[in-house]
Amino acid sequence: MLEVRNVSKAFAAEGTVTQALHRINLAVAGGDFVSVAGPSGSGKSTLLGVMSTLVAPDEGAVLYNGENVAAMGERGVDRLRRRDFGVVFQFHHLMPTMTALENVLLPFLHRLRPVGASLADRARECLERVGLAHKADCLPAHLSGGEQQRVAIARALVKRSRILFADEPTGSLDSATGDRIMELLCGLNAEGLAVVMVTHNEEYAALARTRLTMRDGMLADAGGTCCAACPA
């Protein structure tokens, strides 16, 4: 479904060039669960950014269903982000001035046409799915970190994404909340949603079907554990 071919990415800052990714090759199949672990600065988040089209690679290509993302044009990439890709960030990234329900509906607010009742119902279902139906009208400031992260996951679910990219989804949470988030991700993966997760946590990384480790912008090794390990 998603393929990364010979992707390289460098960042230049204050005259120093940092090679964040160096000739990465990677494939994510439908329904896969990929974890990317590694020390800070190893290029994990950059890889996630490149795979989710948020970061353009310097070299190489990202293919989605066989089509080069770079050739899709800006409109095509926007459409891809809207329809097929869902992203969950480490620090939740909700719109602070919108309620939980409105944040879940955010992917549909890119146009003038008003959101219909059916989409609003679907958003409530997604909130219910992540156990936050009762907090639909709460502003992010009134939600805990774990709740905010679950709203972000509901936001990815509402548009029926094909792949969910999660950048350190448990990074800013306590372990109990982190466990609940991982439980949720594993459950969604079991239903067919492909998940690509960047994490520092070895325990959570071990829950993935495909485990990748990065070091100095390169994939150090790849291992696999069964998703059956997920606490479904």
């Binding site: 948020l54 982000r81 992203v87 990234h93 602070p96």
Partner: peptide, 15 residues
């Protein structure tokens, strides 16, 4: 960050 979020959700530059 909010703008980056909107863009990551597929909001076009025009939007």
């Amino acid at each position: 960050r909010e703008i980056g979020l909107l863009r990551s959700l597929g909001f076009s530059r025009g939007a």
